[in-house]
């Protein structure tokens, strides 16, 4: 640190903080606006958008829960998200370990196949996927949609985790093998704990993508009692569309936001440090 503080430095840091604060406002204000609006009555919503709500008008939230059964959908969302994460971890940890640390003939080929998989977005294949699944009676099923979620997240997760696995020093395994751990034992007892930051990273990425997923859920889940939150939100929009209940729509948006915010604030340190340790070092 320099001891002398020059005038230009002060100006520069003022400008820098100004930029940071402006960007903070740009990011946060729309979200705050959403929260405020969710407490407004429909008449208030149509007034000046900058006004704060006149009171804590909870009717919008009540509508969101009663008319659109948001509570119902939340349970499904949690179920599908948790199931998808479990499947994803099982598949990606085993695959990445072998792909990252074993030399065998098809290794490169399989790696390349998964690399290509990163380019296949769910939206490209959703129609044939639906056709196939309905012919196998897999559609409208929370277990199978979790499998699909996990598999679609697989290429990216394997990509991250494989390069993370490569950074773990060989010695750990060698000594484990000498100690008589089998391949599986080594993976579970030695590698998984060492790869924890990488595993946490893919879990968190998985969470956000599963929690927010929309197009597949809409296509693959048709029963009301199986739908997830984003679909519930769409239902709210549908009601908004016809009953012009903007308040309930904003309330619904907030209801979807809250768990995301909570999970994010709980995990953001792990998330960002996970990204740091993970395979995106290039």
């Amino acid at each position: 640190m320099r001891s002398k503080i020059r005038g230009t430095d002060i100006v520069v840091s003022i400008i820098i903080y100004l930029i940071l604060i402006i960007n903070t406002i740009v990011v946060v204000y729309p979200l705050l606006w959403n929260v405020f609006t969710s407490f407004k009555t429909n008449t208030e919503i149509l007034e000046n958008p900058w006004y704060l709500p006149k009171g804590l008008n909870l009717i919008n939230y009540i509508n969101a829960f009663t008319k659109a059964k948001i509570g119902y959908y939340s349970v499904n969302s949690v179920l599908v998200t948790v199931l998808s994460i479990i499947i994803l971890l099982f598949l990606s940890v085993s695959s990445s370990y072998v792909l990252g640390r074993y030399k065998f003939r098809l290794n490169n080929l399989i790696n390349n196949i998964y690399m290509c998989g990163i380019f296949i977005q769910s939206i490209f294949i959703v129609i044939p996927l639906y056709l196939m699944m309905s012919s196998l009676n897999m559609d409208d099923n929370r277990f199978w949609i979790s499998v699909v979620y996990a598999v679609l997240q697989l290429p990216f997760s394997i990509y991250l985790l494989t390069s993370y696995m490569k950074t773990i020093p060989r010695e750990y395994e060698d000594s484990a093998m000498i100690d008589g751990c089998g391949h599986l034992g080594t993976l579970i007892k030695i590698i998984v704990p060492l790869a924890k930051p990488g595993i946490i990273t893919i879990t968190i990425f998985g969470f956000f993508s599963f929690w927010n997923e929309f197009p597949l859920a809409l296509t693959l889940l048709s029963s009301e009692e199986k739908k997830t939150l984003p679909i519930g939100l769409a239902n709210l929009m549908e009601i908004q569309r016809y009953a012009t209940d903007w308040g309930a729509l904003f309330a619904g948006l907030v209801i979807v936001l809250v768990p995301t915010v909570v999970i994010y604030s709980l995990t953001q340190r792990k998330l960002t440090s996970g990204m740091q340790m993970g395979g995106i070092k290039g």
Binding site: I127, Y130, P215, T219, A234, E238, R241
Partner: peptide, 18 residues
Amino acid sequence: LMCMLTLAVSLFAGCAGK
């Protein structure tokens, strides 16, 4: 418009047109 809004992504996701 339902579809746009609900972002139905396939032919099979055509929505309830109220």
